[in-house]
Every structure is written in C-alpha cells, then in structure tokens.
Amino acid sequence: MPTTLPPLGEILDLLPDAVCVVDPEGHYLAVSAAFEHIIGYRPDEVMGRRMIELVHPDDRAATALAVQRVMEGRPLPHFRNRYLHRDGHVVDMQWSAKWLPEYGVRLAVGHQVTELRELERKLEYMAGHDPLTGLPNRYRLREELERAIGDSEQALAVLYLDLDGFKAANDRHGHAQGDRLLCEVANRLRQALRHGDFIARVGGDEFVVLLPGCAGHGDARRVADTLQASVAAAEVPPFAGIGASVGVACCPADGRDAEALLRCADADMYVVKHRHRGAAAP
C-alpha cells in the first residue's frame, strides 16, 4: 500500500518552535501553530504585518542589522531578541534564519528562551554581586573602575572604607549579628551617596566607593565624612559605636590605573585608622 505524506503545514504545526516565512520587506506570509502559542497572535492576525512591529522596541535596531546580514546571504544560526506577546509581556527568542532567493522569502525558526534568559540573568547577577548585602562585588568594581578611568574627560575619586573594630566585635557577638550590621551599613552607605556614585563590598567589612566627577581630595574627604557619619548612625544591637575609617585617592593625582588608585586609597585608609586609634587612646 503506497504511503501518502501529510501536508507539510501539518508537520510544521507539530513543532514546538515557531516557523515563520516573510517576504523581502519582512511581511508575514506564513507562520506555524507554535507562533500563536509562543507570541500569542493567531496566524490570521499577523498575515501581512511586518515582523519588526512585534519585536521589542529596544531590540528593533539590532534585529534590523541581523535581517540585513541574512538578506546578504549570511545565514543567522543563533540570534536572540525579544518579542512583545499579544498580552504585553516580553518573550525572549532565539532564531535561526536564512534568505531563500530562489523563492524570494526569508525563513526563520524561533525557539523560546525566556526561562534560559532568566537563569542567565540570575547567574550574571550572582557573578557580579555580594550575596549578603546585594552590593556589587570586587569583580564588578574592577569593571566599573576601569570604565571610569577610561573616561578621560571626567575626574574620579576612590574611597576605601573599613569598619573600625568590626572583626573583634563580630567574633564576640556572633556572625549572624555581624551580617545584620553589614547589611545595615551597606544600606546606609548606599543611601548617603549621590546618584551616579558606585559602591561595592570588596571584603568582610571593606567597601569601595567611586565618585565620578569629584573635583579633588577636599570634595572627596567631605563625602568620606558623610559616609563615616552614616556608619556611626547604624544601630544593630548589640553593636554600638561602630565607626569607619575612609581613605581617599584621586585620579589622576594619585594614579591613572585601577591598581594604583585602590592601593593609594587603601594606604590612606590605614593612615586614617591609625589616627582614630591614636585619638581613642587614653
């Protein structure tokens, strides 16, 4: 008995990925059943519409460049962009596309990667942030510092902050209470900074602040005094009277690279800490 193949459309409609056919100007000519499942529009609702209209506005420029590449005969195997679902939510997609000049159409197969992208975002966040305080970590600090140094038209100050007596108090009262204090200090420091300033936790009780546009040591020291006052106001029993020592370094006066600026600010912080200890001595 001869075998009769079902229509190709019925086969395509079984696929979990969206299959789209558009003309050279990007108007939909055909979509598979999965298109509605993923993006929310029935086939009859998109026929004749331009594909770019359904793309997230922030991704349209990159998508247009990708389309140009495909139309030049360069297949696009793994292009990602975001679509706006019919109900308004964002759908992350990964596409493989090819221009078929003999038919005058562009063929694309799209796989939804929203869950994968959410996982990637979480991993990216974890890689760049301190899990306790939520502040950027040393890795993110280095990226931001090098970017700020590269902006030659903008002055920059670096503050290195260390809590006074925290280690001994943490051992005495317990790490759980110490973690509470660190979170409280992080929140107070974040609130005390200007819009555009950057703060990172780089060690147990050490924080680094970047002050883009800070004119010099005098202005930086005034910000440091404000941060010291914010730390002193932190109230997490049984901790009382926790202070902070803050060192200052300015670019380019104290260095023109990340290592030099951090080293200078750290050294200045120890000078300030020694001064605090001397003032506290009977």
Rank of each mutant, 00 (worst) to 15 (best):
L116C: 03
R221S: 02
G218K: 11
D130I: 13
C251A: 15
G203L: 05
Y41Q: 04
R60Q: 10
V272N: 12
R190T: 14
H111D: 05
E120I: 06
C264H: 14
D23E: 08
A186W: 06
A249G: 04
T133M: 06
R263V: 13
F35E: 04
R42L: 13
A30G: 14
L84E: 01
V223N: 00
R172H: 09
G26W: 11
Q68K: 14
N187M: 13
A260H: 10
R180N: 02
R69F: 01
H276K: 12
D219N: 13
H56V: 01
A240H: 15
I11K: 07
A200K: 00
V231K: 08
G150R: 01
G128H: 13
E25G: 05
P131W: 00
A108R: 03
A64F: 07
A280S: 14
Q112P: 05
G241A: 13
E146M: 09
E53T: 15
D225K: 10
R69L: 09
R147S: 11
A33T: 05
A176F: 15
P252T: 11
A224N: 07
V46C: 03
K273M: 10
I242G: 12
D87T: 08
L107E: 05
A233C: 12
Y41W: 07
G216R: 03
L261Q: 07
E184H: 12
V70N: 12
D179R: 10
S32C: 08
V113S: 00
Q154M: 12
G218R: 12
V185N: 06
G213Q: 04
A108S: 14
L262D: 03
R50T: 14
V46N: 01
P101T: 04
D87Y: 02
E259L: 14
A215S: 15
Y41P: 02
D23T: 05
L54N: 10
E45Y: 03
D266M: 00
C183V: 12
L123N: 02
L141R: 08
H129W: 04
Y83D: 00
G73D: 09
Q177M: 14
P16G: 03
A233V: 13
Y103P: 07
T3H: 06
I38A: 00
D58G: 08
I52P: 08
V105L: 09
T4K: 09
E184C: 14
E53W: 11
R147G: 02
N81K: 08
A62G: 06
D254G: 10
A30T: 15
V202P: 04
H195V: 13
L116V: 11
M47F: 11
P237F: 12
V21P: 02
A229P: 06
R82W: 05
L5P: 05
I199H: 01
Q112S: 08
T63V: 02
V272R: 14
D92C: 05
V21W: 09
H78V: 06
K98G: 15
R180A: 07
C251S: 15
L65S: 10
W95D: 02
A176V: 15
I38E: 01
R138M: 10
